[in-house]
Design a protein around this nucleic acid. Structure first.
Length: 765
DNA sequence: ATAGGGTTAG
């Protein structure tokens, strides 16, 4: 019973014989049942081929059940029948079923092996692919090519090159595979060198090289390639046209567009999106309307343009009009609404969309986070994970920064744990986001550990920790880190220098700070900006050199902003220079008329010198301009729950205990020499400043609650939305000593780390 | 009838 005519097959240099296989048709149960009935009949090969064709057809249409039915009902099969089933399963994403077929099939030929190896690759299991490849009794050029592109697509260029060099026979596909390996992994020079090795390439490879130059925005070289392509195809034209369109050379793009002998939807969309990207929305729309044929991408491109320029009405119109939408279309709309501050519309679409991907979740989370609704942002993130969406970079980064902003340490830690398991934290944006989260949540030691574990550090990684230490008052650590950074050959940028200068000012290192300030242009080519000047004014002012600070401000090559005047104000405060402080505060107010804190500060200042008329004027001005005082509040996280307190708060279930605790504490503090400090001049604190209220400022309530509820030995972490007042600061120092607790208080400016009666801010903030 | 490469638009 021979079904297969022995035939000679040629694969590369390997020529061999496919043996007729009789076992195939008797060794399986489903076959046996039919073969007993029809055992005498020999099914003609043409019939089996017909069946195989039908299997392939079913598979192509996603109907693998019918394919299996037919396969099971066949009383005679060839190895091709099995192969077709396997490849069909893989086409439909059913790797396990394919693998089972492969393991159970009576005899495999070379094609079976190749199908399975490529199946492993497609299901992202490179290891399994390699194992199978090594097990193959015979390999041909196809097998080698599969491994070559597998490595290339997974960024393993060296492995790809090894395969390429080892393979006994190379064909056009192998050469193109190696070229694509270089191009796809950003090694354009290697690609060019390889290209120069051979005199003739297929048009696909020409296009590939040209695309590489396109990705690197190397226009001239892309054009050089284009002009030398012996026989250009549509893709060649499309590539060069998008090259010009994306780099803003629309005239040249249009010229080539006119010249191009054929155009398809790619050509047109390239032109449209070129105009979109160069903010020529009206032109884009005109061309868009002329397009003979549009698809989802063309619509999405146009919608993106409208969304980016706040034209959500027009975006919506197109979105409603388009014949079919994909997830990108929805995502573009959601991002557009969210970034234009219309979170309701964003949420509405998010709820309505049929299928969400990680971009959708990240977009809505970022929308809430940016509109100040951190709680909802975190809630949706949790919902995302419950819904089975895998952790992804963009959502994680957004949520980590939200955790950082509201100091949601528990959630931040959980996310860190999950990311760690997924291997995301080794570097890059996610690693930096984790680092920043710990810094901003007041866990500077944990931040340091994370930093140590990050293998791929960039300048942001260094900056984050340097700033973390500086904001914490650990200036020496910040400066040490800066030195290590330079030793590791990282080039400091302007942000690094802000951290370094602020660290200097916190430790009073006037000479060193001044040296850094004047050398940064010379050594790193960094031009001082207003933040650097603010640091220097702070540094000089804090050291008592108020005149030098003021002169530096006057000599700035650009106009001083509110923050710079704020630095001078702070310096004036610490040295009791009311006159300069008043002037600085007025300047801040001139720059930031909405700054409620400044009104209060100024009016306090006038009050202190008995200028009641001016006090009244400030109050009136505030009322007239409708400036709202920001109410002070503090919050603390205990066992995954956030507890918020306002001044004199009695809403908390434990407030009874809290007040009793505080009363007792005050008695103990007075015995230790505590005197209520009402020196509030030049502080931008309000409401809570009334002396009778002082005792029950929100941060005191939060810390008291923390001591009552957090086990000994663990730090009390409290966040306050305003600056901490002087009395609270003093009280925290006492508490830290009397209760033997570490208190970490983040106010809107920096960290205060109280331990045994001392604060890292050195009592200046 | 089954297996391998690649390029262009959001």
């Amino acid at each position: 019973m021979k079904v297969l005519v022995p035939k000679r097959c040629c694969f590369g240099q390997i020529t061999f014989l496919i043996k007729p296989n009789t076992k195939t048709f008797t060794s399986f149960k489903s076959v046996e049942t039919t073969s007993t009935t029809h055992s005498a009949k020999i099914v003609p090969i043409s019939q089996i081929v017909q069946w195989n064709k039908s299997i392939a057809n079913f598979m192509k249409n996603g109907n693998y059940q019918s394919a299996l039915c037919l396969f099971n009902s066949m009383n005679q099969r060839t190895v091709v029948s099995w192969n077709t089933m396997m490849s069909g399963y893989l086409y439909n994403g059913k790797f396990d079923k394919a693998r089972k077929m492969f393991d159970e099939m009576p005899e495999r030929d070379l094609v079976s092996w190749n199908i399975m190896v490529s199946g492993c690759v497609k299901s992202k299991n490179l290891g399994a692919a390699r194992v199978l490849f090594d097990q193959m009794p015979v390999r041909d050029v196809v097998s080698w090519n599969v491994m070559l592109s597998a490595y290339a697509q997974n960024g393993m260029v060296d492995e790809a090159r090894r395969v390429f060099e080892m393979m006994p026979v190379k064909n056009e596909i192998s050469w193109n595979g190696m070229l694509a390996a270089y191009v796809g992994n950003g090694m354009i020079e290697e690609a060019r060198r390889l290209f120069d090795c051979r005199s003739s390439w297929e048009v696909v490879s020409w296009n590939c090289l040209m695309g590489g130059f396109l990705k690197n925005k190397r226009l001239d070289e892309a054009r050089w390639v284009f002009d030398r392509i012996p026989v250009k195809d549509l893709v060649s034209w499309n590539t060069i046209i998008s090259c010009y369109a994306q780099t803003g050379m629309l005239d040249e793009a249009m010229k080539l567009f006119e010249e191009s002998p054929v155009k398809d939807v790619f050509t047109w969309t390239a032109i449209v999106s070129g105009h979109v990207q160069n903010d020529m929305l009206d032109d884009a729309r005109r061309i868009f309307d002329e397009m003979p044929e549009k698809n989802v991408v063309s619509f999405n491109s146009m919608i993106t343009g409208y969304a980016k320029s706040n034209r959500m009405d027009l975006a919506r119109e197109l979105f409603e009009a388009m014949p079919s939408r994909n997830t990108s279309s929805w995502n573009t709309m959601i991002t557009g609404y969210a970034q234009n501050g219309d979170i309701e519309h964003a949420r509405n679409l998010f709820d309505k969309m049929p299928y969400r991907d990680c971009i959708s979740w990240a977009a809505i989370i970022a929308g809430y986070a940016q509109s100040g609704n951190s709680d909802e942002a975190l809630q949706i993130f949790i919902e995302m994970q419950r819904g089975g969406e895998r952790l992804n970079r963009s959502a994680s980064t957004t949520v980590l920064s939200t955790c950082a902003n509201i100091a949601s340490l528990e959630l931040g830690k959980q996310i860190h744990g999950c990311l760690y398991k997924s291997g995301f934290v080794s570097g890059g944006i996610v690693g930096n986001a984790v680092l920043a989260m710990y810094c901003k949540c007041g866990c500077i030691d944990e931040a340091h550990c994370v930093f140590e574990e990050i293998r791929e550090r960039d300048v942001v990684t260094w900056n984050t920790l340097i700033h973390g230490y500086a904001r914490y008052g650990f200036s020496r650590k910040a400066l040490e880190l800066f030195e290590t950074m330079k030793k590791d050959r990282f080039k400091p940028d302007d942000i690094t220098m802000v951290g370094v200068l602020s660290a200097c000012s916190h430790t009073g290192l006037v000479d060193r700070g001044t040296e850094y300030f004047y050398s940064m242009g010379r050594e790193y080519g960094i031009i001082a900006n207003s933040k650097h000047y603010s640091c220097m004014i702070d540094l000089l002012g804090r050291a008592g050199r108020l005149d030098d600070a003021e002169n530096l401000l006057k000599d700035m090559p650009f106009e001083a902003d509110a923050a710079t005047w704020g630095a001078l104000l702070g310096a004036s405060r610490i040295h009791g220079n009311t006159k300069l402080g008043e002037k600085a505060a007025q300047m801040v107010l001139a720059k930031e008329p909405w700054n409620a804190g400044m009104y209060i500060l100024l009016s306090n200042l006038y009050a202190a010198s008995g200028r009641w008329g001016e006090v009244r004027m400030m109050r009136l001005k505030m009322r007239d301009t409708g400036i709202k005082k920001v109410p002070g509040y503090s919050w603390i996280e205990v066992q995954n729950r956030t507890h918020v307190f306002t001044v004199g708060d009695s809403a908390h279930p434990q407030s009874g205990r809290i007040y009793v605790f505080l009363e007792d504490l005050y008695l103990r503090m007075q015995r230790e020499g505590y005197v209520t400090s009402t020196k509030l001049v030049l502080h931008d604190v309000d409401e809570e400043e009334k002396v009778q209220m002082l005792k029950h400022h929100s941060e005191k309530l939060a810390v008291a609650f923390g001591i009552l509820n957090i086990p000994d030995g663990r730090p009390i972490r409290v966040i306050k939305n305003l600056r901490v007042c002087e009395d609270c600061h003093t009280v925290m120092k006492f508490i830290s000593r009397i209760e033997g607790r570490v208190i970490i208080l983040r106010d809107n400016n920096r960290f205060h780390h109280f331990n045994n009666g001392v604060c890292t801010c050195g009592d200046y903030w």
